[in-house]
Nucleic acid binder design. Structure first.
Length: 841
RNA sequence: GCUCACGUGGCGGAAUUGGUAGACGCGUACGGCUCAGGACCGUAUGGGGCAACCCGUGGAGGUUCGAGUCCUCUCGUGAGCACCA
């Protein structure tokens, strides 16, 4: 029955019609500089969505949230006279297609093609104004040829600390080039996920489990490709400064990079010709260091362990080695450790302090060794208490005794520390570092939590490396041999041994008599690290992006996507961009000038949408029932773009009703049940009040699009429509202006009505309306009168009334006099054009 | 545990620089139109009170003529990090 019900307005007819028109006429194609129809007089605007992974499930309502926002901006900017680059593509390498292939035998290429077709038709049904001529697909050899090419640039360059830049490897003066390349091979403890049969980057491991699938991850030493992102840590932090990004995301990146400033201090080992270097952010607490801890995996443990400690130390190390990362952090509550029977000499006071191993010290951070300062480090304190060590305060907290200062972590005054006694912490740090440097016991040092990026995966559906192996050494393929296309396989399964599936194709790996191909593939992030560049010049087969288009379009003026990429994609892409910039291939060192994160859309029950909860909303259903315009409008009307918010079908009905009112403002149903232009629409002048509402709407919608406050822009358009539904003669000119304002939000209905009004030209080609401040000026304003801050009355006053006149009027107001009778007026505050506050005793 | 963000009607949410709290939408109630309505149109709608008024932005303090907005503490929700020395 409900499906038989007549649509409130015939969106099912005109929405597909307009989508066809846009496609046929290629209305949204943005020509590059030098191409036909390119207008160099216009400024450019690059507005980008985070391109989706085309999953088999199709689009969910979360995708179009950001896409609608950018589409509104794109359409708006075009009307404002910009050349707008608004592209879409597919981040199509990845696990799901491959796992589907393992299950069904269907090649990931086919699965990907089907999924893309579905995604694309869904996006087109929403009426997004993408330039589909620029569509890209990361799994297309014409695309990943250049992903591989960029890898070669990384492979063929190094980071010069003197220039603080990536440079061609030829400028490297050292012996071993392979040790300096930005892409290098290393045997490192990596995150190995047995279930997925691949290694994962730190960023892909959450709480000891794989981000995808939630499978357990263990540490295991393996030989892997790494990218030297750590060399860019400083710039990745510093250059955030200039970006127009949410502070929260900047903070997330800063925390992930985890810069900490401090010192490295050398401790001589008693009776050995060895020193152990520790990292500390609190060199000023050196006098309080009365033990040392090495990570259990520290290379010096074997050599330094005393005879009588060996079995205990071996036992402890074995116990730690058997634990997964998850267990290791899970058991974090109780400190464990073992003394190795050796002693270090504290360089400031020459005290012999015992050396322990303990798993609370990590090999992967700093030097894998720490000085234990139980007085001023929580973990050391806990450790010292557990093993009955002495605890010496060396920093006195303000307003506390030395004893009370134990456990105090922030700034104070140095005590019990002859070299720096009496100095506040910042100076104490500085002075002791100077002392250490002077005496050759250490130096100022900065450490980062950021690790080099583990860049290889033991999977099938990814970009092969353009690398050959010969005599146990790697070398790069020549550019001319790109792309390296993965071999056809029948069996996509991971081998389980850590050997990649590509190794199964014996023909493919054999490059020559002596050389074999690298069998790892790149991680899913590779393609998305530079896709925004390719959009500038997607068909170029000579270069990854042409110089001129790159220079013209970059960087991205507005980038909208989910927070889930805060430290993954957004960090990796910035890193690649910097390398390409240093090497002179691109014109900017940051890719995304302004970033906005859309909030998650929850199910109708306020819970995260998920299959198991059964609260997933399918865009196709919504569009079938209410139309694409209502869908778009609701996505934006729900609330602020960046906020998390629940879906509501009632809300969709609400905006659908609004669009139906817009429709009936201009169209009437005749006896035959056909829609025709309403006779109420006439070429009449606007009343003063109507003009005011129109201009207020232009202003509000314009300002709100600029600030991405789409929800309030829509409210204002509702106010406009409500004001005009009751009038007898609907002014044609006001309707035309309104339709232009509505167009970015609801492009189909506005196009259809624009045409029905027999307006000149295409609505998408209209200039954006301007408002006139003069029209908005009121000649009378309502002044609020408060007594002691409480609202007591309102009065109409001329806008020209002086403060004094307003004050007099307020005091003379009959109602106000009741409130101030018998009281002394102590003060009268006048806020021009707004309010009067009378303060009494 | 640490860091950050956010707490406003029955619900989603509005509120330049501190200046009329609750725009707009949903829901609800009543009325109209209608053979009918889960369609459409109109009116009302934070709570209490017949009313004048009183109370209201998670809670407690504070600054101010005036606080949803600023400060301190506290509770709750969400996100991120998680022995990073």
């Amino acid at each position: 029955m409900s499906s038989e019900r007549r649509k409130p307005y015939p969106f099912d007819q005109f929405e597909p019609k307009w989508q066809r028109v846009w496609e046929d006429r290629q209305v949204f194609h943005a020509p590059n500089p030098g191409e036909k129809n390119f207008d160099p007089a216009k400024p450019k605007f690059y507005v980008l969505d985070m391109f989706p992974y085309p999953s088999g499930a199709g689009l969910h309502v979360g995708h179009p949230e950001g896409y609608t926002a950018t589409d509104i901006v794109a359409r708006y900017k075009r009307m404002r006279g910009f050349n707008v680059l608004h592209p879409m593509g597919w981040d199509a390498f990845g696990l799901p297609a491959e796992q589907y292939a393992i299950k069904t035998g269907q090649h990931p290429k086919l699965t990907t093609r089907e999924n893309i077709a579905k995604f694309k038709s869904q996006l087109q049904a929403i009426g997004f104004s993408y330039d589909w001529q620029r569509e890209i697909n990361t799994t297309d050899p014409r695309y990943f040829k250049w992903t591989q090419w960029i890898f070669l640039q990384l492979y063929n360059s190094w980071f010069n600390p003197e220039t603080n830049k990536a440079e061609p490897i030829a400028t490297y003066r050292g012996q071993d080039r392979d040790s300096a390349r930005l892409a290098y091979v290393a045997e490192v403890p990596v995150n190995w996920c047995p279930e997925l049969g691949t290694v994962l980057a730190n960023e892909e491991v959450i709480d000891g489990k794989s981000e995808i699938g939630g499978h357990p991850v263990v540490k295991r030493p393996m030989r892997q490709w790494m990218l030297r992102i750590t060399k860019f840590a400083e710039r990745l932090i510093d250059e955030l400064e200039e970006l127009d990004w949410p502070e929260g995301i900047k903070l997330l990146q800063r925390n992930w990079i985890g810069k900490s400033e401090g010192a490295e201090i050398d401790f001589k080992i008693d009776n050995y010709d060895e020193t152990i270097r520790v990292f500390t952010t609190r060199p000023d607490t050196l006098y309080g260091a009365n033990y040392m801890v090495l990570a259990p995996e520290h290379p010096l443990v074997d050599r330094l362990t005393a005879q009588d400690r060996q079995s205990e130390v071996a036992q402890y190390r074995a116990k730690i080695a058997s634990k997964s990362d998850l267990e290791r952090t899970d058991l974090a509550k109780e400190k464990t450790g073992a003394p190795i029977g050796a002693f270090a000499i504290n360089p400031v006071n020459k005290e012999k302090i015992p050396i322990w191993i303990a798993d609370y010290v990590l090999m992967g951070y700093g030097t894998g060794a720490i000085m234990g300062v139980p007085g001023h480090d929580e973990r050391d304190l806990e450790f010292a208490r557990k093993f009955n060590m002495s605890i010496l305060p060396v920093v006195q907290a303000p307003g506390k005794t030395p004893e009370e200062s134990i456990g105090f972590l922030d700034d104070g005054i140095a005590i019990n520390s002859p070299i720096i006694d009496g100095l506040p912490t910042p100076e104490a740090k500085k002075k002791i570092i100077e002392w250490l440097e002077e005496h050759g016991h250490g130096k100022r040092e900065i450490n980062y939590k950021l690790r080099d990026w583990l860049f290889s995966r033991q999977r099938y559906w990814g970009e092969p490396f353009p690398i050959l192996w010969e005599d146990g050494k790697h070398r790069a393929l020549d550019e001319k041999e790109l792309p390296v296309v993965p071999p056809a396989l029948d069996d996509f399964k991971p081998t389980g041994t850590g050997e990649p599936p590509l190794a199964k194709s014996k023909d493919w790996i054999r490059y020559s008599k002596t050389a074999t191909r690298e069998t790892n593939v790149m991680p899913q992030w590779a393609g998305s690290c530079w896709y925004y560049l390719r959009f500038c010049d997607p068909q170029n087969n000579k270069r990854f992006v042409g110089e001129e288009p790159e220079k013209y379009w970059m960087n991205v003026d507005l980038y909208v996507g989910g927070t889930e990429h805060a430290v993954l994609h957004l960090l990796y892409a910035r890193f690649w961009q910097k390398v390409l910039f240093d090497l002179g291939y691109v014109s900017t060192s940051e890719p995304f000038q302004r970033l906005v994160n859309q909030g998650i859309i929850l199910g109708e029950d306020g819970q995260k949408m998920s299959k198991s909860r059964g609260n997933i909303v399918n865009p196709d259903d919504v569009i079938a029932q209410y139309g694409a315009d209502a869908f778009r409008l609701y996505e934006m009307f729900m609330g602020p773009l960046e906020q998390m918010k629940p879906w509501s079908m009632r809300g969709v009905e609400g905006v659908s009703r609004f669009l139906a009112r817009v429709w009936r403002l201009i169209m009437k149903e005749n006896q035959a049940g056909e829609w025709e232009l309403s006779s109420a629409v006439q070429d009449v002048d606007l009343s003063k009040n109507q003009r005011k509402i129109l201009h207020a709407t232009i202003k509000k919608v314009t300002d709100d699009i600029e600030t991405l406050s789409f929800n309030t822009a829509i409210s204002q358009m509702m106010i406009f429509v409500n004001a005009f539904t009751t009038v007898e003669a609907i002014p044609l000119s006001a309707m035309r202006t309104f339709l232009i304002l509505l167009n970015p939000f609801a492009p189909h209905i506005s196009s259809e009505l624009w045409e029905n009004l027999k307006s000149k030209g295409d609505i998408t080609a209209q200039p954006w309306p301007l408002y006139d401040e003069q029209v908005l000026l009121e000649d009378e304003v309502e002044i609020v009168v408060q007594v002691n801050g409480k609202l007591r009355d309102r009065m109409k006053m001329s806008i020209l009334a002086s403060d004094e006149e307003v004050k007099t009027a307020a005091l003379g107001n009959a109602k106000i006099q009741q409130f101030i009778a018998g009281k002394t007026v102590r003060k009268v505050v006048v806020v021009p054009k707004k309010l009067v506050n009378i303060v009494t005793d």
